[in-house]
Amino acid sequence: MSSSAAPILLLALAGFLIGGAYSTWKTLRWLSISLGACAVLAAAGAILWLR
């Protein structure tokens, strides 16, 4: 994987995780919060990678 593709893939992963967090909010709150935390970590990793 090239170094320019990694942040894009991390941002895509963050978006996927946020969608999962949104869809599970009403049924499994603990899973939704976990997915949201992982999405924040993936987005932060992508931003830090670009710096």
Rank of each mutant, 00 (worst) to 15 (best):
19 G>L: 11
21 A>M: 02
31 L>H: 04
34 S>D: 10
2 S>F: 12
19 G>D: 08
15 G>C: 05
4 S>M: 10
42 A>S: 15
18 I>P: 00
48 L>Y: 15
11 L>V: 05
15 G>V: 01
28 L>S: 07
5 A>S: 14
18 I>D: 13
6 A>N: 07
24 T>P: 00
29 R>S: 10
50 L>V: 14
1 M>S: 14
37 A>Q: 01
34 S>C: 14
5 A>P: 00
13 L>P: 00
39 A>F: 10
42 A>E: 05
32 S>Q: 03
38 C>M: 15
51 R>Q: 07
43 A>H: 02
17 L>V: 03
37 A>R: 01
8 I>L: 11
32 S>F: 05
9 L>N: 08
30 W>V: 08
6 A>T: 14
41 L>Q: 03
32 S>I: 01
35 L>Y: 12
17 L>K: 12
7 P>D: 04
26 K>D: 13
34 S>L: 15
36 G>N: 06
43 A>E: 04
27 T>R: 13
23 S>Y: 10
22 Y>H: 06
47 I>H: 03
47 I>M: 06
10 L>T: 04
12 A>I: 06
24 T>E: 13
50 L>N: 13
51 R>D: 09
27 T>I: 08
31 L>D: 01
10 L>G: 05
21 A>H: 02
29 R>L: 15
27 T>E: 14
11 L>R: 07
8 I>K: 08
17 L>Q: 14
5 A>I: 08
21 A>T: 01
7 P>C: 07
40 V>Y: 11
25 W>D: 06
14 A>Q: 02
4 S>D: 13
36 G>Y: 05
37 A>K: 01
4 S>H: 08
41 L>M: 14
9 L>D: 07
44 A>Q: 02
23 S>G: 01
49 W>P: 00
29 R>Y: 12
6 A>Y: 07
41 L>A: 15
10 L>V: 07
42 A>I: 03
50 L>D: 12
18 I>C: 10
29 R>K: 14
10 L>D: 11
34 S>K: 11
40 V>I: 15
46 A>K: 00
41 L>N: 03
1 M>F: 11
42 A>H: 03
49 W>Y: 10
17 L>Y: 08
5 A>Y: 00
46 A>C: 02
32 S>P: 02
33 I>V: 15
28 L>I: 05
39 A>K: 04
16 F>A: 12
5 A>E: 11
19 G>Y: 07
44 A>M: 09
1 M>Q: 09
25 W>F: 14
31 L>Q: 05
16 F>G: 09
27 T>H: 12
27 T>Q: 12
26 K>G: 06
12 A>W: 02
17 L>R: 06
7 P>N: 03
49 W>C: 01
32 S>R: 00
46 A>S: 09
26 K>V: 04
3 S>H: 12
31 L>Y: 10
24 T>V: 11
7 P>A: 05
